[in-house]
């Protein structure tokens, strides 16, 4: 009787990549609900359209690369990319813009490098930055809260009929960037883009993403290091460079934490394990880097928000961070650091 020969370990845990992806999708629900409640069905429509597009792209590329299509579609990574993109893009962006973002994310963000696990950059952020640079007009058209209905929204997306003027408004970060005359207090009091603590609308969206993030943290989908690093650095930077509430104000720490894509970035983007740093210490450094860059670009750069740029820049630095943040191995007096190989 010949019994199978299998090497140890024989027992395996129950966590699977697919389940991780599913949990990430579940964690986006609060943010999705907040976006839908505030801006109508735009985000949901984008999400459905982009999911279909992403799966289509993924399947086509897998076919081209002669990989088992069903097996790799099942890992859910393409879906997560599409959903994160849909949450980041303006709700009523035209269909071709979202399609372009999606295509770039899947093709140039991921498969060009060899598919899942091989990409040095966060695919969703690659897609986002491509359309941000290419189509600035469409990308700045964020709707005012509760301004767009389902049918007009669909027509806007499909390009059948444009929405009436005044449906979109500048975000709080846009206003602060462009502001030259009013004090911050006046902006908080008068400008419709400003809410209670951050941007009107975006403060709720940020809180919803925070909730989703805490859920994932609780389920141990990732460690606290990267989000804490980013939020902590952003908070410290905005505190350090908080120059009062004059017209040249950089904004308060709370304003930065609850505006723009801060929470989406902190819990759904910088926690991407593939393009981030490896060790826990490395992840902390990675998060801190993103937080600092976000503030630098928001305060002194050319763009109102900066999560995508900051993440991509830190993605570049991740391999180096890895070399300098190796943990001390058991039985060794000190950790090996730097590019040095061997003795």
């Amino acid at each position: 009787m010949a019994l199978p020969r299998i090497t140890s370990p024989h027992a395996t845990g129950s966590t699977r990549t697919r389940q991780v992806m599913q949990l990430v999708l579940v964690a986006t629900l609060p943010g999705l609900l907040a976006l839908t409640w505030l801006y109508g069905f735009g985000t949901l429509l984008n999400l459905l359209w982009m999911s279909a597009a992403a799966l289509g792209f993924e399947a086509a590329v897998l076919q081209l690369r002669q990989r088992p299509v069903g097996f790799f579609l099942g890992d859910g990574s393409a879906l997560v990319t599409a959903v994160l993109l849909a949450l980041a893009l303006p709700p009523y962006a035209p269909w071709w813009l979202t399609l372009t973002a999606c295509g770039f994310a899947i093709l140039f963000g991921k498969h060009v490098y060899g598919g899942l696990g091989q990409n040095p950059f966060n695919p969703a952020m690659v897609g986002y930055v491509v359309v941000l640079i290419s189509f600035p007009l469409e990308m700045t058209a964020w709707p005012a809260p509760h301004a767009v209905g389902l049918v007009e929204g669909l027509q806007q997306i499909l390009g059948i009929a444009a929405l009436p003027d005044g449906w979109s408004q500048a975000t709080a970060l846009d206003v602060r960037k462009a502001n030259r005359s009013l004090t911050m207090d006046e902006l908080w009091a008068q400008n419709p883009a400003f809410g209670y603590l951050g941007g009107r609308g975006s403060e709720w969206v940020n809180l919803a993403f925070l909730a989703g993030g805490l859920f994932m943290l609780r389920r141990r989908l990732f460690g606290w290091h990267a989000p804490a690093g980013m939020l902590g650095a952003l908070f410290l930077m905005s505190l350090l460079f908080w120059n009062g509430s004059d017209s040249d104000s950089n904004g308060s720490p709370l304003f930065h934490l609850l505006s723009g894509a801060t929470m989406l970035g902190a819990f759904f983007i910088v926690t991407d394990p593939v393009s981030g740093a490896t060790s826990n210490q490395g992840r902390l450094i990675f998060g801190i880097g993103v937080g600092i860059l976000v503030y630098v670009i928001r305060a002194w750069g050319g763009y109102p928000d900066a999560v995508a740029f900051a993440v991509l820049l830190m993605n570049l630095a991740a391999p180096t961070i890895d070399y300098f943040s190796r943990p001390r191995t058991y039985g060794h007096r000190k950790a090996e650091r730097g590019f040095k190989v061997g003795d």
Binding site: T17, G115, G117
Partner: peptide, 9 residues
């Protein structure tokens, strides 16, 4: 069957 490593750590 193994999937690619996603560097989850």
């Amino acid at each position: 069957p193994p999937l690619p490593c996603i560097r989850c750590g």
